[in-house]
Write a protein that binds this DNA or RNA. Structure first.
Length: 489
RNA sequence: GGGAGUGUAGCUCAGUCGGUAGAGCAACGCACUUUUAAUGCGUAGGUCCUGGGUUCGAGUCCCAGCACUCUCACCA
């Protein structure tokens, strides 16, 4: 016997039950089922145990205990679980149907609420109160360990979601966090907008894009690496406060913090600057913490993270000094440090070496939320330079648990300076497909109000707030290599 | 692309020194009207990832490949 025929045998047994149901005139794939109450709300309202209460619920059979003339079912729906009891003496003519149920089936149940001997709240299904809504033909995962194989969990998220309740909880929380963000911004007068995901010029970041092709225009297009340049066009247009919760795409390596397509939010506020955005960031994420975390201390892998406000604000140069011992202006010292970190600095520009040392020594150490302020200007082509020291740009990044969570700056609105920066950026970046965005320069020539702009990695934020140390646990269908299709025949 | 690890029943996993493949759950059959991962008895289920090699004999040792995981590199 091969395993394939075992699987077929399993499916055949269940197929047989479908045919038995059909012979009884019952559609195993059911239909509309109204007035369904979530399992957890049924249990909540029965706490007072008033006699004669009815309930109507629907869900998937995740546990099945057949003890003769009595069957106990644990039914799972989006809210949780509830026990459903089938009794031969109550079901009467419908009793034989109880023996056609299997683990994994989706059913509806109506009946009296009661408690069993051990106190479990149970829906005792009444006569004709059992509804077949969908037969499960495929074999469900093991009931106690759930679906544990990581690859299968991501590939078959449709099983993972009900086999592992904490998975469903995490994705419900993700939705709730995004709802909180929307409410927060809408309450402050920000308008949610949508800008192109297919762009002729992939701008707003330095990353390798994915290429796609428009047939009838015979035109190569890029999947956006950032919505930034379009959102700033909207500032020129006078929308003044906009945000986009956007999927962006970067053709780079995968890691526990990187998925090729990821969700971020970008926010632009006319007449603001990066200090305004820093306050906004702290309040925005703070409101998510308040709404969705039990308290401000969260665990993230091996880290204990304290999210209590206010958050530390420290200059880039000061953090470099603190963690590497190097003065940012002493390039020889920085290069010595780079060599001691086994970085090959010989071919790097000064600013790049500084940033490499910064990333190697500082970022991992920023566990509690830390705003890193005032980046070297050469690293920031879209950012306005500091009025007091033009070597630095008015930009911050927010780090939590060693992870870059947000990036914001005072937007550069000088078209001549922006044009110069683009030219510098284009040198030696052929592999990023970077192209001069002359239309963006033209837009700036019409006048863009001074503005603060902010980007927050939504996936990473959800990771922090739900304790998921890999980005694939907060993305419903993370990128995976496709499985080879089985050869037909 | 580099390094490390994993791959055994549908699922979760054992498998000792190289000596004819094991458990729990799921499945199938029987019993059971208050179970809680129900229980008891019975049955069935294997390309030990793939291909080579060593050996009288390989799930086990060696080589190569594949897949996945972790990690490093890449990554405004």
């Amino acid at each position: 016997m091969t395993s394939q025929s075992d699987t077929d045998k399993f499916e055949q047994h269940r197929q047989d039950k479908i045919e038995k149901l059909a012979a009884l005139g019952i559609d195993p794939y059911g239909s509309r089922y109204d007035q369904v109450e979530p399992a957890e709300s049924i249990k909540a309202r029965f706490q007072d145990e008033q006699e004669g209460q009815h309930a109507r619920c629907a869900g998937r059979i995740v546990l099945f205990r057949d003890i003769g003339k009595l069957v106990f079912i644990t039914l799972r729906d989006r809210s949780g679980t509830i026990q459903v009891g089938l009794s031969k003496s109550i079901l009467k003519d419908q009793w034989p149907l109880a023996k056609l149920l299997d683990l994994g089936d989706i059913i509806g149940a109506v009946g009296q609420l009661g408690r069993t001997r051990t106190g479990e709240i149970t829906i005792w299904v009444e006569e004709n109160g059992l509804a077949f809504l969908s037969k499960c033909l495929a074999q469900p995962p093991e009931k106690f360990h759930g679906l544990a194989d990581i690859d299968q969990r991501y590939r078959q998220r449709y099983v993972d979601l009900w086999a592992n309740p904490e998975v469903m909880e995490r994705f419900k929380k993700r939705s709730a966090i995004i709802a909180t963000i929307r409410q927060f911004l809408e309450a402050r007068g920000f308008l949610e907008v949508e800008t192109p995901m297919m762009q002729a010029i992939a701008g707003g970041a330095a990353a390798k894009p994915f290429i796609t092709h428009h047939n009838s225009l015979d035109l190569d297009l890029y999947l956006r690496i950032s919505p930034e340049l379009f959102l700033k066009r909207l500032l020129v247009g006078g929308l003044e406060r906009v945000f986009e919760i956007n999927r962006s795409f970067r053709n780079e390596g995968l890691s526990r913090r990187h998925n090729p397509e990821f969700t971020m939010i970008e926010v632009y506020q006319a007449y603001g600057d990066y200090n305004v955005m820093m306050d906004l960031t702290e309040e925005l994420i703070g409101s998510c913490v308040a709404a969705h975390c039990a308290d401000t201390n969260v665990t993230f892998g091996d880290c204990d993270v304290n999210l209590a406000r206010p958050w530390r604000r420290a200059r880039y140069a000061d953090l470099l000094k603190e963690h590497s011992g190097c003065d940012i202006d002493d390039i020889d010292a920085v290069r010595r440090k780079a060599r001691s970190l086994e970085l090959d600095e010989s071919a790097m520009d000064d600013a790049v070496v500084v940033n490499e040392v910064f990333e190697a020594t500082v970022e991992d150490a920023l566990i509690d939320p830390t705003f890193v302020l005032d980046y070297p200007a050469v690293l920031c082509p879209l950012t306005k330079r500091s009025k007091t020291d033009p070597r630095y740009a008015d930009r911050f990044e927010l780090f939590i648990a060693g992870m870059e969570l947000a990036n914001a700056y005072t937007e550069l609105n000088d078209p001549a300076q922006q044009y110069e920066n683009f030219l510098v950026q284009l040198k030696g970046q052929e592999d990023t497909m970077a192209t001069m965005d002359t239309d963006f320069i033209k837009a700036l020539k019409y006048g863009m109000p001074p503005a603060g702009g902010l980007g927050i990695g939504i996936d990473r934020l959800v990771m922090i707030l739900t304790g998921a140390t890999t980005i694939r646990d907060v993305i419903l269908f993370p990128h995976l290599k496709p499985v080879d299709a089985p050869t037909p025949g």
